[in-house]
Amino acid sequence: MAAALIQAVDDRQPHLLRLPVQQGSASALEEVRYALGSRHPRAGTVVLEAGRWHLRLPELRQLQELLAPLQLDLIRVAGDHPETLVAAAALGLEIDLAVPQPPSPAGAAVAGDLLVHRGTLRSGDHLQAEGSVLLLGDVNPGARISAAGNVLVWGRLRGIAHAGVAGDRNARIVALQLRPLQLRIADMVARGPEGLPPPGLAEQALLVDGEIRIDPAAPDFSG
């Protein structure tokens, strides 16, 4: 099944750009070019249904540039791949879960094994996830965030974060500003760095040779 552009019935609604359910050899950009073809959709806004596609920040930016000459403005990305949602948020786009479920804690929703929470965690709060967790907000001092998988924070991490709580030593912790009181990955513990992060880069903590190491991370949180 190929990508499809479903035009809105009126100017008040966005067009829907739907990527194929199964990701084949063609890139997302190629799929969108095919969907547009020789069509001349009415100018307006666009919602991208990405499904399980893993789209990094540069790819989403290329999609925006492809749509712009047609006076189409990408405003929202729906999908269930955590790094796609984070990359979309990095570009200032709205994000939606592809398959919304009844909310978990207040402000949170689940898609597959990803828990997405919108809002800041304040002192005394503890957000837990059975899979990976994506927080669109800050983790203030005195707050905790933990997950069996990865911990992704689109904001400042200044509380306590624990990734791989069930023992996954490949889990990682990523944040725009990684300055926690304490970091845990599986059974390893470390304190956060004190200096400011490199400008324009997120940071990630991961286990390297049995120790927690903090490195710059591209804004798409890939790698």
Rank of each mutant, 00 (worst) to 15 (best):
P193K: 05
I160M: 14
D138I: 01
G149Y: 02
L183H: 02
Q128M: 13
A129Q: 05
A175P: 02
D113Q: 06
A190Y: 08
A147W: 00
L114A: 03
P103L: 13
D125A: 11
N140V: 05
R144M: 12
H117T: 08
V139C: 08
R156D: 02
Q182R: 15
Q182T: 11
R179P: 02
G164R: 03
L135H: 09
V151L: 03
G192H: 02
Q177Y: 05
G124A: 10
I173F: 06
A108E: 13
Q177S: 15
N140K: 11
P102I: 05
P193G: 07
V116K: 04
A166P: 03
V110I: 15
G149M: 07
S123H: 04
V165F: 04
R118L: 13
S123N: 06
L152C: 08
R156K: 11
L152V: 10
D168W: 07
A111I: 09
A163G: 06
Q204F: 06
N140W: 08
Q177V: 14
L121C: 11
G107A: 12
G124W: 10
V110E: 13
A166W: 08
A111C: 13
P103A: 14
S132L: 07
V151K: 00
P198D: 13
P199C: 04
P199W: 02
E203T: 01
V151R: 00
Q128K: 14
S104R: 10
